Computed example of a mutant assay.
Amino acid sequence: MRVLQTEDLTAYRQYLTQNREHLRPWEPERTESFFSDQECIARISLMHQHTEAGTAIPFSLFMGRDMIGVCNFSNIVHGVFQACHLGYAISAAHQGKGLMREAVEAGIHYMFEKQNLHRIMANYRPENLRSAALLDSLGFEREGFAKRYLKINGVWCDHVLTAKVRDDE
């Protein structure tokens, strides 16, 4: 698990293109240019800017040289809130093997222990039973339901709102 580097461009593009259909139901609409080297490099650069600014930690998951998923902590707010949002995805070839759980669990530990956050929020579409089960198994609690919350694949979709609060405080 690490933040992408420019030299990861090939692995990043390969992950995106190989999983385009697999991820389509859960992500924003993607144009052809989204998959171009130029836009991938721009996103990698933006990831570094957000990491350096302390507003996000966009981890990518690797198995050897192959990128197999993402575990992103975004919208990081310090001060009295001490919270962020969690987003994640894993390649079709690696789902169902416990790898996403392992990555998210490690990411949560890092955010609580190293970033000193108090709260991590994660939202999922009601029909995404895998995400529901993963978050539940990691101790996320349902906090609400948001109608037409995010525009996913061109359609405004409802989401279940969950959060995990640090236990030791």
Rank of each mutant, 00 (worst) to 15 (best):
T6F: 14
L9N: 04
L9P: 03
Y12E: 12
Q14N: 15
Y15M: 14
T17H: 00
R20W: 10
L23W: 02
L23A: 07
P25G: 01
W26C: 00
P28S: 08
E29V: 12
E29N: 14
T31I: 01
F34A: 02
F34V: 03
S36L: 03
I44P: 05
I44W: 07
S45V: 08
L46R: 11
H50L: 12
A53P: 08
G54S: 05
P58W: 10
P58D: 13
M63E: 15
R65E: 11
R65S: 12
M67V: 02
V70L: 13
F73M: 00
F81T: 14
Q82I: 04
Q82W: 03
Q82N: 04
H85K: 07
S91P: 09
Q95N: 04
E102Q: 13
V104C: 06
G107Y: 04
H109V: 12
Y110E: 06
Y110V: 01
Q115V: 02
Q115L: 06
R119T: 03
I120L: 13
I120C: 12
M121Q: 15
R125S: 10
N128H: 00
S131D: 06
D136H: 10
R142P: 02
E143Y: 04
E143S: 04
A146W: 08
K147L: 12
Y149H: 15
L150I: 07
D158Q: 11
D158H: 11
H159P: 11
V160A: 04
V160W: 04
K164A: 00
K164W: 01
K164S: 01
R166M: 13
D167R: 15
D167K: 15
